[in-house]
């Protein structure tokens, strides 16, 4: 199925966001920055879904994006709870300080 050339600009944008998010997830130690990177990663896919859905003239991509927004909210809530607990345990949200488990 042919996708219009203009759509690929959206894919370029989402690809860039995905790359930034991956870089942030790998290189940032602060838990809040990690949560923000995760939001970037999930929303990069949403841009794709919206752009492709418009290009295909179908609704299922938009539907997926809606569900995905709800999932991102759930992910943030669970992540925040885990990081709050981490802060209680080690008085810091620096995830690089969590080094009890290794081997």
């Amino acid at each position: 199925m042919a996708v219009e050339l203009a759509t690929w600009w959206y894919v370029a944008l989402s690809g860039t966001l995905f790359a930034i998010g991956t870089w942030g997830l790998m290189n940032r130690d602060n838990a809040i920055m990690i949560l923000m990177s995760i939001e970037l990663l999930l929303n990069a896919a949403n841009i794709n879904f919206a752009a492709f859905s418009a290009a295909h003239g179908a609704q299922d991509g938009f539907t997926f994006a809606l569900f995905s927004i709800a999932i991102a909210a759930g992910e943030a809530a669970v992540g925040l709870a885990i990081f709050v607990n981490l802060f209680r345990l080690q008085d810091s949200v620096d995830v690089s300080k969590a080094t009890l488990l290794r081997g």
Partner: peptide, 18 residues
């Protein structure tokens, strides 16, 4: 979270092609 985003991004590209 990283693996979920890989899955969903891959799915979005699959959707774009198909």
């Amino acid at each position: 979270a990283l693996s979920s985003s890989l899955v969903i991004f891959g799915m979005s590209l699959l959707y774009g092609s198909a």
